[in-house]
């Protein structure tokens, strides 16, 4: 909606808010899924607990984990001997989109020296929409559950022992 608010001559503020909103939509989708996964494991899947756990996730950690998973990299402790992990295509789409939207949101919100254009934002929103659709298809898979767990446990699982 924001990106189409002024179709002929869009305002920078509308375009920037559209990018920011797309990022936060994907952030909340994934952070809530991760929070619910942990909460249910502990037998505390009520809305209040999930909501509190959502706040424990770090945007930067999620971005870094997404880049790793998007590049088919797993934490070392999870790799079996001689295993070459390959992230499923739908999960790769989600993880890659998250990393790209994170940076796009940082640019949109804080780097006013880099004006954004309407076509550029449209492409970014399409990327977010495709990530949502891909998540619907992949969210029940073990790879997706592992991705969510990595938001909190990557550092622990990636230590060399």
């Amino acid at each position: 909606m924001l990106v189409k608010r002024e179709p002929k001559n869009p305002k920078q503020v509308s375009l920037r808010r559209a990018v920011s909103a797309a990022y936060y939509a994907l952030f909340h989708l994934l952070a809530e899924a991760a929070a619910r996964q942990f909460a249910e494991l502990c037998g505390r899947g009520d809305a209040g607990t999930v909501s509190r756990l959502v706040r424990s996730f770090s945007h930067i950690d999620m971005k870094r984990v997404s880049e790793k998973i998007g590049s088919s990299v797993l934490p070392t402790s999870l790799l079996r001997p001689n295993e070459k992990y390959l992230t499923p295509d739908d999960l790769k789409r989600v993880a890659t989109a998250f990393g790209a939207l994170y940076q796009a949101r940082m640019d949109a919100d804080y780097d006013t020296g880099k004006p954004v254009t309407r076509p550029e934002v449209l492409k970014r929103l399409e990327e977010a929409k495709e990530a949502f659709e891909a998540w619907e298809r992949v969210k029940g898979a073990d790879d997706a559950k592992l991705y969510l767990a990595c938001f909190s446990l990557w550092e622990t699982w990636n230590k060399q022992r």
């Binding site: 590049s71 790209a100 940076q103 796009a104 880099k114 004006p115 309407r118 076509p119 550029e120 492409k123």
Partner: peptide
């Protein structure tokens, strides 16, 4: 781009030539 720059994150942006960035002051 990922093959050429494997150590770094690649951020792709798509713009139209109908946008004239120089006029708008885009880098």
């Amino acid at each position: 781009a990922r093959e050429v720059a494997p150590e770094g994150r690649v951020y792709l942006h798509f713009r139209s030539t109908s946008d004239v960035p120089e006029v708008q002051g885009v880098p």
